[in-house]
Design a binder for these strands. Structure first.
Length: 417
RNA sequence: GCGGGGGUAGCUCAGUUGGUUAGAGCACCAGAUUGUGGCUCUGGGGGUCGCGGGUUCAAGUCCCGUUCCUCGCCCCA
């Protein structure tokens, strides 16, 4: 075991894994583009205040999980623990109000000081989709549809279920919160220690407690749906109708809530039972109060984030290796010709591996291990005749090809990278 | 932050009640085969047994600390 380890909770992504990682990002990007979203990026660190104000000072993420530091100019900065706040900050900073609805796709590393587990790292990566400046439930439908389409393209939609709920508008939420506090307060002695704390800090959270005793109480707790204002109720109905029309299956989970302060109305999660305790693959919701909280004009928004590492674990070991051609020179004179030839092919977008040395046997062996589709052999005989030998690794057959015809041959064999 | 289980070669692991120079398979390198890969055979390199301390004549093995991974809680993607 090596003594020089990466920082706890961080991992190197080596080429084989990176291929799967990139496949997830590429698939997500492509699906998002199809829905009219455009890729963008924000800095991986922001003023600490951006996250503290958006997520709430008392949230667990802000109070104990942020990588915050003071830079040499004395500013308190924080490595982003999530994407939404940064996008909203960018929306305000760049005066994008005139571009609403603003539809963004992004991805990148996030940082949280948590105890690592499988599917939970201190540096992890998310794909992210946001719509800012749309108050209509149709936006919620679209945002969730993008997520479903990404999961479908990754071939893992059937390993997930979509759980859906509403937190109502602020008015609904206040009434419901009071009702919950009243209900649970009458059973304080039966609540778990954790939930007793939640009763003061974040009573909605009791609803998704994993404690057996809590669950029994939750089963008879008031439901948000009885406290929705007519407007909030209509909104939720429209969302469900829209999802039905889009062919996105879901189940309503009245106990699904959000830990972050800025969520309103829609809350949803795509979850799986294949990843142990880290079952949430992709989750999000509506955050109509966030932009204003950050200092912008009141602007509605909705979005989600998906954990790339978790998506990778669910998806199949990925994609076909690139079709590489190995050029194998034999003899000193052929070395130069091989370099020239490699340049010609690469300019035509054919992936070429030119071994650095060794005899023919070694170079063939190496080409085979790399998974090369074919080898181009060039030695003194071939040089004299102006040809190369083209060997197909799969069939083992070898043919002689004029040097001028090689490119056409390779393209015909669909060896383009 | 709390509780449980782990760490022996690049990978997967074995290693007896503590006992001499710590092993296997796979992988890697070399040769058989200096103009032809996969298969086979032969040989080779590679380990401060996670790290530090303690007990002992003797520690991979027992004890303590620590670090990292892992399972669950909290929280979250």
């Amino acid at each position: 075991m090596a003594q020089l380890q990466p920082v706890r909770g961080t991992h190197d992504i080596l080429p084989d894994d990176y291929a799967r990682f990139r496949h997830v990002v590429d698939t997500a990007r492509q699906a998002a583009l199809v829905f009219g979203y455009r890729e963008m990026a924000t800095p991986i660190f922001e003023f600490t205040d951006v996250f503290a104000r958006s997520m709430g000072e008392t949230s667990d993420v802000v109070s104990k999980e942020m990588y915050s530091f003071t830079d040499k100019g004395g500013e308190s900065l924080t490595l982003r623990p999530e994407y939404t706040a940064g996008i909203c900050r960018a929306f305000i900073s760049n005066g994008l109000q005139q571009h609403v609805p603003f539809k963004a796709f992004g991805w990148g590393p996030m940082f949280r000081f948590e105890r690592p587990q499988k599917g939970r790292q201190r540096q992890f990566h998310q794909i992210d989709v946001e719509v800012i400046g749309a108050a209509e439930p149709q936006a919620d439908v679209e945002v969730i549809s993008v997520a479903a389409e990404i999961l479908r393209r990754l071939g893992i939609l059937d390993k997930c279920v979509l759980e859906l709920n509403t937190l109502g508008d602020p008015e609904s939420r206040v009434g419901y919160r009071d009702a919950l506090v009243r209900y649970f307060s009458s059973y304080v002695d039966k609540l778990s220690d954790d939930s007793r704390k939640r009763l003061e800090k974040n009573p909605l959270r009791i609803l998704d407690s994993k404690d057996e005793g809590d669950r029994a109480l939750v089963a008879h707790a008031p439901l948000i749906h009885d406290y929705l204002t007519p407007a909030a109720s209509d909104f939720f109905k429209a969302l469900q109708d829209g999802l039905g029309a889009s062919g996105v299956p879901f189940t309503v989970s009245p106990r699904l809530v959000r830990g972050l302060d800025y969520y309103t109305h829609t809350a949803f999660e795509f979850t799986t039972d294949m990843l142990g305790a880290q079952g949430t693959v992709l989750a999000g919701g509506r955050y109509d109060g966030l932009i204003e909280q950050l200092g912008g004009k009141p602007t509605p928004g909705i979005g989600w984030a998906g954990g790339i590492e978790r998506l990778v674990m669910l998806s199949d070991p990925q994609p076909a290796a690139p079709r590489i051609v190995a050029i194998i020179p034999i003899g000193a004179a052929a070395e130069a010709a091989a370099v020239t030839l490699a340049g010609d092919l690469r300019r035509a977008d054919i992936a070429v591996e030119l071994g650095y040395g060794g005899n023919a046997g070694k170079r063939f062996k190496r080409a085979d291990r790399l998974g090369c589709a074919a080898a181009v052999v060039i030695g003194d005989d071939e040089l004299a005749k102006g040809v190369v030998k083209l060997k197909d690794f799969k069939s083992g057959t070898e043919i002689e090809v004029a040097r001028g015809d090689l490119l056409a041959h390779l393209k015909q064999d669909q060896l383009k990278a």
